[in-house]
Every structure is written in C-alpha cells, then in structure tokens.
Design a protein around this nucleic acid. Structure first.
Lengths: 120, 120
DNA sequence: TGACGACATACGTTGACAGGTATATAGAGT
DNA sequence: ACTCTATATACCTGTCAACGTATGTCGTCA
C-alpha cells in the first residue's frame, strides 16, 4: 500500500521539515544541514529513507546532489503534501527553517540548489 | 509536535482501516473484528495505541466499548482525516471493509455501535 | 594523480512497535 | 456468588528505525 509509505515518511520530525522545505524549492544536502541545523549524517540518512520510498528525487550537479520532489507524483502524495502545508504553515519550527533557508540563498552551493527550478 | 503523532497513527495499515471506518460511524471492538477480519488482540491493541494519542475516544455501553473519533478534534486531525478519505475511497481493501461493515449492522452489539451517533 | 569537498554507507547500540499466546478485568445475567 | 461475554493487558519475540562514529565513494580542481 503506497499510502502507508507516505505516512511512514511523514512520521519523523526531521523528514517532515525536509519535505516542507522541498515544497518550496529543490535543495542540496548542505542547505538542509544549515537550514535545519542538523548533522550531515542525519540529514543524509533521512534523505536516503525518503528516496528509497520515492518521496524525493535526486540529480547530480557537480559536487552537489540536488534533492527535489519527484516530477511526477501520485495523487496521494500531492494530497498529503498539500495537507502538510496547511497544517504546518503556522508552526514555529517550520517557519524558522524557512527563514534560515532564505538567509542562505546564495551562500553554499551558489544558485545551484535554490535556482535549480529554472535550470531543469 | 502533535502532527507527528497523527502520522505515527496513520502509518500502520490496520490503524488506517480502523480510522477509515470511524469516519463513517462509531463502532465497538467486535465490529472492527468482523469488518476487518482481524483478531481481537490485534484490534484491541491498535485501538489502545490510537486512544493513547488522542485519535479516538471511548464510551462504555453495557458490555461493549464504543470507539469514536473525539468530539473535539484538532484542525490537523480533521485535515488529515479528510485527506485520508480522499486517498482511500477507491482502494479495494477499504471499500471491502465498508461493505462488510454494512452487512453486520444489526448483528453483534445490536444498534449500540452503529446507532451510537443518535444516542450521544 | 593526489588532495579536497560533498555526500553516502557500514557498523553498533538502543528503543519502539507489531504480532501472538496466555491471562486478567469488568459488566450483565442467572 | 458464578458464569459468560467483551475487552484489555502482560509477556515474549522478531523487526525496524534513529542516532552516532567512523569510513567509503565520487566528482572537482590543482
């Protein structure tokens, strides 16, 4: 049951924060590290978890690996991501993540991560 | 984070089926047993799990214990239950659960379970 | 080719949870 | 008081996931 995998991915705070950022823009690992303030291993393993279940897609860009929501998503995933957005928009942790992300914009892997939308 | 608990509850197939039935009507344990075709222990433990996290409420009625969605629900819970409904309405397992439930209606704990809506 | 940076993976530990078997509780009816 | 029925809980086992530490991989650039 595909739905179950979605909920399994959703039931960890770190993964929820990751997915929340991804609904805004594709990102490389170091952006997640900085925006969430978590260790590289932790981020990397949660991303692998999400990837194994098809909730995120990857694309290499030089030294960096850009994570994004998959281009073609199931109706279930779209519905739940939207629902997540609604539930989360007011929560302080998620707002803070977003704010920190915005302050990073051009720092780390340059425009690569944040502007990947236009390039792809 | 309350949201996490919702997703934790949602990430097991049996619990998902239970919640799906509860969006239709309050039910006693034996109704779940029959509709889902699962053992009493299994149902009972998943109900306890849901109850511990506030996703369901209970009410004693003679020999039976009626489970229902809590009267006052958080916005998050409501949103996710609605989303679940949308995702699940076409899935065969869930349809089958509902059909089996309908055939049980007046059998087990009489009107107690299914009609609890009107009594409360 | 060698070093460095970004990211992934192996390994070990710990804790949570799913499932089953067996047993307890609690109300109803006799 | 005893019994029956509905439901819950204790205990055990296996699995999986979270986290940290250490190490591997793979591009890039000199």
């Amino acid at each position: 049951m595909k739905l179950i995998q979605i909920y399994q991915c959703f039931c960890d705070p770190t993964r929820l924060r990751i997915l929340h950022l991804l609904t805004q823009t594709p990102l490389c690992v170091c952006h997640f590290q900085d925006a969430l303030g978590e260790a590289q291993v932790k981020i990397s393993k949660h991303l692998a978890y999400l990837r194994a279940r098809g909730l995120v897609a990857t694309k290499r860009k030089g030294n960096w690996i850009i994570y994004s929501l998959p281009a073609r998503r199931s109706a279930e995933l779209d519905a739940n991501l939207e629902c997540l957005q609604d539930c989360v928009s007011s929560a302080p942790i998620f707002r803070r993540d977003l704010q920190r992300l915005e302050k990073l914009q051009a720092s780390c892997c340059e425009p690569a991560g944040v502007l990947a939308l236009e390039h792809s």
